[in-house]
Design a protein around this nucleic acid. Sequence first.
DNA 1: TTATAATATGAATAATATTCTAATTAAGTA
DNA 2: TACTTAATTAGAATATTATTCATATTATAA
Lengths: 159, 159
Amino acid sequence: MSKLEVSLDHIDYQILRIMQNNARTNNADIARELGMAPSAILERVKKLEQKEVILQYNAKINPAALDQNLLSFIFIKTSDIIGEQGVAYLLAEIPEVQEVHDIAGDDGYLVKVRTHDAAGLVDLMRNTLGKIEGILSTRTTIVLQTVKEEQKLVIPSKD
Amino acid sequence: MSKLEVSLDHIDYQILRIMQNNARTNNADIARELGMAPSAILERVKKLEQKEVILQYNAKINPAALDQNLLSFIFIKTSDIIGEQGVAYLLAEIPEVQEVHDIAGDDGYLVKVRTHDAAGLVDLMRNTLGKIEGILSTRTTIVLQTVKEEQKLVIPSKD
DNA sequence: TTATAATATGAATAATATTCTAATTAAGTA
DNA sequence: TACTTAATTAGAATATTATTCATATTATAA
């Protein structure tokens, strides 16, 4: 169910590799690089989108440029029943929340949050998290420095 | 030093908002949406890239499509001296490692890793992490389900 | 082998990107 | 206010790319 039934060949992998590194690479360039006709590439890219292999195209924006300099991870224990993630969906709706993961062993979620500063974090926890029913406790970890932050997947080199 | 000295106006914000949601939106469309000339938009986008407000354009690929179904967070304690992240840079070089954060209070890093399955994770920890000098201990948290996973920032609506 | 489906090519056309000049706007200064 | 300068924008011209489609090729299975 979570496993996608898609068969990708090495040309698809090459396309994915290019697109993962620069989503604005145009068809003509990809075609040139792979020695194929642009129309063939276009066809494949559209199929990759349709099959939801490519989920979306994002511009990665510098958080500092928007004055969002504090990154935090919050472990949130809840009264959610296993398999029913009521609180998780509420957390997911918060714009400052970038990630919500249901984690094993702890009856809780790992949540990634980006705020302007510590005051912004406190504000979020008090005024937003504080209003969510079902949160039993939180444990917050502040990020001092991010050495790497990417979504890039390891793409096979052969079929 | 980490704070960027950039002044963005509300047109920039609108461009960023559009690009963050779909990095492949073309100039002509943005221009139409904002009621401006394509050349003006192009100019601004290039400037946003130059000023490193826009860092890169990524295609978000479905991990399941590449059979990378296990997401884990690993807390890694090291002998790294504060301010000197030797181990962190080694961790950052590992393709399966998507994120490396230096976290407060623990003399350690929070690392996000994507592997095919549990066996892949064990393999990575034994054969790759195991060979890195300076790792004192690790604590691994398995993600059962991801409810939200985005890099999108909150973009101000005014200047 | 033959039939069928999937994929690729290549050409034609539509749309977009890019460049450049002139016009406009904004901000600061005398 | 008038002037200067820098930044931004519009608009036109051209280069490049996207997209469509008919045909050809390739792959797969019966």
